[in-house]
Amino acid sequence: MTLQRRQFQAILGMLGLVLCGSSVRMARGATSRNSPDSFMLPPNGWVPNNAHLPVLHYRNGFPTHGSDPASGMEALFTANGWPPRWRWGVYDFHHYHSTAHEVLGIATGSAQLRLGGPDARLVTVRAGDVVVLPAGTGHKNEGSSDDFLVVGAYPPDQDFDLQRGPIPPAAITIMNRLPFPSTDPVQGRDGALPRLWRTG
């Protein structure tokens, strides 16, 4: 089914979103306009993490009312330049992606995610949260509710690998030079990511 612009705007309005030029952002007063938690993770054994880009954690970054919040997240990420690729959960083992940055949109449920590798930072995520992981960031599901559902998104033209061990220094150099969209996956062009993720 093809949606007309007016129909698309009506759907976005029900989700608390507005269309601004070529990007989508939250409606005025929505909680996602708040700044995300932002933190760096140092290298941790075989997990490289990312020496240049912080993890971003939007708490209540997306309204989850409605029968299919995952579809709303997919529309938001797509419009803001981070195409969604899957709906699922998070693996229950430590891993990272060296060939892509990753967005995790929590559509339903909750989980305890270990970010940064073994014994690193434990973060609670709930429905409506969005976590942006720069390439190299370790992550693991250490326990989740039965209804835990995640929308995974990535920058255009980046395919994610699955790393469970060290990679050579040359691969880390390439990882640290990966491009990323100039828009925030949650807040669009005026969001936190363009300010907090800078190259050079």
Score class of each variant (00 low, 15 high):
80 N>D: 14
81 G>W: 06
94 H>L: 02
66 G>R: 06
96 Y>M: 05
58 Y>E: 11
53 L>Q: 13
84 P>I: 06
58 Y>M: 09
93 F>S: 02
83 P>H: 00
92 D>A: 07
59 R>V: 11
70 A>K: 10
60 N>H: 14
81 G>S: 05
64 T>H: 10
60 N>Q: 15
50 N>W: 04
80 N>F: 11
75 A>F: 10
99 T>G: 01
75 A>M: 15
62 F>G: 11
80 N>R: 09
57 H>T: 10
86 W>A: 15
92 D>F: 04
98 S>G: 02
43 P>G: 06
42 P>F: 09
102 E>G: 03
54 P>G: 11
53 L>Y: 12
88 W>P: 02
50 N>C: 09
81 G>A: 03
85 R>Y: 06
98 S>C: 01
71 S>D: 12
94 H>F: 02
68 D>E: 13
87 R>P: 02
76 L>G: 07
86 W>H: 06
53 L>D: 07
66 G>Y: 07
46 W>N: 10
96 Y>C: 03
87 R>Y: 01
72 G>M: 11
43 P>Y: 03
58 Y>D: 12
52 H>A: 14
69 P>E: 13
53 L>R: 15
88 W>N: 13
102 E>H: 04
77 F>T: 07
47 V>Q: 07
59 R>Q: 15
93 F>W: 07
43 P>D: 08
59 R>P: 01
41 L>F: 03
99 T>I: 01
53 L>S: 07
79 A>W: 06
43 P>H: 08
53 L>K: 14
71 S>F: 12
46 W>A: 10
76 L>Y: 06
56 L>V: 10
62 F>T: 14
88 W>Y: 14
70 A>W: 13
48 P>K: 04
86 W>L: 13
95 H>Y: 03
84 P>L: 00
75 A>R: 13
73 M>P: 05
77 F>G: 01
55 V>I: 12
55 V>G: 08
57 H>P: 00
44 N>T: 01
70 A>S: 15
81 G>Y: 07
101 H>Y: 06
87 R>Q: 13
89 G>Q: 13
73 M>S: 06
100 A>Y: 02
97 H>A: 05
100 A>V: 04
97 H>E: 03
75 A>V: 14
61 G>H: 12
55 V>N: 11
41 L>K: 08
66 G>H: 03
97 H>V: 05
72 G>F: 05
61 G>S: 12
90 V>T: 05
100 A>H: 05
42 P>T: 11
82 W>E: 04
82 W>F: 02
58 Y>V: 08
45 G>H: 01
52 H>T: 14
60 N>V: 06
72 G>T: 11
86 W>D: 12
62 F>Y: 15
80 N>I: 10
103 V>A: 11
56 L>G: 12
71 S>W: 12
56 L>I: 10
49 N>G: 01
102 E>A: 11
85 R>G: 15
78 T>S: 15
49 N>Q: 04
46 W>S: 13
